[in-house]
Amino acid sequence: MEFEDPIKKFLGYISSRKFMLPYCGKCDKYIYPPRNFCPFCGSRNLEWREISGRGKLYAFTTNPDPILFPPGVLGIVELDEGVKVLSRIDGKYEDLKIGMPVRLDFMEVTVGREKMVVHKFVPVKEEGG
């Protein structure tokens, strides 16, 4: 059977600085980690869509072992699309707050021996703030 690995496809998009996710029109759900079927209804009829890039900081901490990846904040972002993803977060731990709005960006890093692009999120100043 033909099988296109959705994780590989996702990472391919990330390396060209695009954050795309499979989307199930029947359930109106975005799928993460990327799968070749909808985990809610089982449909294989999925469409890759680019996310809005907006989300809220759900939880965060600092990287305790900056061996393969540079030191800094790691966090979980709840995307407007309704999924939570792990990401590097820009900013100092002390300045960040749960619930603060963040926007998508990308960075180039060397993880171990491999040079790669990863997504990161940057805090956004709230309107009027």
């Binding site: 994780i7 990472l11 939880a59 305790p64 790691l74």
Partner: peptide, 22 residues
């Protein structure tokens, strides 16, 4: 896993810390 490991995670404490914070 193939996605999170890209952030160089070496120990589960990263997740435990965030669960605790939340």
């Amino acid at each position: 896993g193939p996605l999170d490991k890209r952030y160089g995670i070496m120990k589960p404490i990263v997740y435990y810390a965030m669960i605790t914070q939340r």
